[in-house]
Amino acid sequence: MSGTGGTGGTGTGGPEGGPGPGGWAPVGPAETVLVRATELTGRPVVSITEGEALGDVKDVVYSPAAGRLLGLTLNKRGGIFAGPMKGVLALERIYAIGQDAVMVTDGEAFTGHGEHHGESHGSRGEAMNVLGNEVLTDGGNRLGVVTDLVVAIGVLGAGLPIDPSARTSGQARPVYPGDVVGYQVTGDATLGARAGAELLVPLPFTLAVSGANLLVPTSVEPFIRDDLSGFDAAVAQFRSRLVTTEPGPGTGPDPGSGPGRGPAQGPGGPSTQGGPSTQGGPSTPTGRVHK
């Protein structure tokens, strides 16, 4: 897997932890890297203290309402005949999602008893398969069909300071590992030159979903990108826009912020749509980008 470094960090602690009296000290969430969810497939899940692989990532379990992964499903190790493992490795039990492996603190992290994160978080939403769903703007335009998720990975640490209500209230917060910050869609025929192309659509903090449709603000269009380079910045700018009540001059998307700008929007940017009227919300830095 190749990658390109990016900028920015979101964390409150060191990215790797450090030795402590008991061997090592777990840390809080650190800077993130964006990857496509399909890139996680096949990565080994490794026990930190035992150095053993518990399985390989089979798929991600995602809640659109929570805007985060709920966990991972696993395959047994041992090649194509190994088969899937029962249950879900809940996100809370994952210490880090890295470039080469998913790390858990010990072999007990995966219970294999069908633990389902969504059931324990009620309002944060249930897992939903969004692949194949249509992404529509609240202006009624069809952007395309979901083919992948863009996920922030990094060290989740011993616990994330995430307020479960933050997502539904639309409050801006940093991007944490496990957050799903965008969808990859196959561009709709109405997108002209981008029809049929794989496009990355940033997601707002709040997301209206149904069984078949995912509704995003029209203001997302200038922030659509063709690849992961600069997508973290696009997500940050888009989300920052959503928490700004009255975007003034010069608050539009940076014309040079990344390749593949979306459908034409002036430098002044579109009016705020789809977001709450939160005055002066903080910016939402995202992490490095991994292509």
Partner: peptide
């Protein structure tokens, strides 16, 4: 033995 960091990076 492969070296992995606790962050899951080789």
């Amino acid at each position: 033995a492969p070296l992995l960091t606790v962050a899951g990076n080789s």
